[in-house]
Amino acid sequence: MNYKKWSIRAIFIIIGLISLIYAIKLEQWKFIKEILTSIIEYESGGLPEAIF
């Protein structure tokens, strides 16, 4: 058994699951919906005219 590999996998899983629990607790998916349903200018830097 490769202990190093399984230790790293365990760390990834633990941090990933804790993050997921916090994301659910803080209802972070609402942020995604909010971003995707609104017009944002963050990614359009360099446009020749301001359009927003």
């Binding site: 996998r9 990834f12 899983i13 941090i15 990933g16 699951l17 993050s19 997921l20 916090y22 994301a23 803080l26 972070q28 998916w29 942020f31 995604i32």
Partner: peptide, 20 residues
């Protein structure tokens, strides 16, 4: 999320669990 000082738990979870 980071640039408005919210820790991106959801993105981190997707990256960690997905890549693993």
């Amino acid at each position: 999320m980071l640039t408005i000082a919210i820790f991106p738990f959801l993105a981190l979870a997707i990256i960690l669990i997905g890549s693993l």
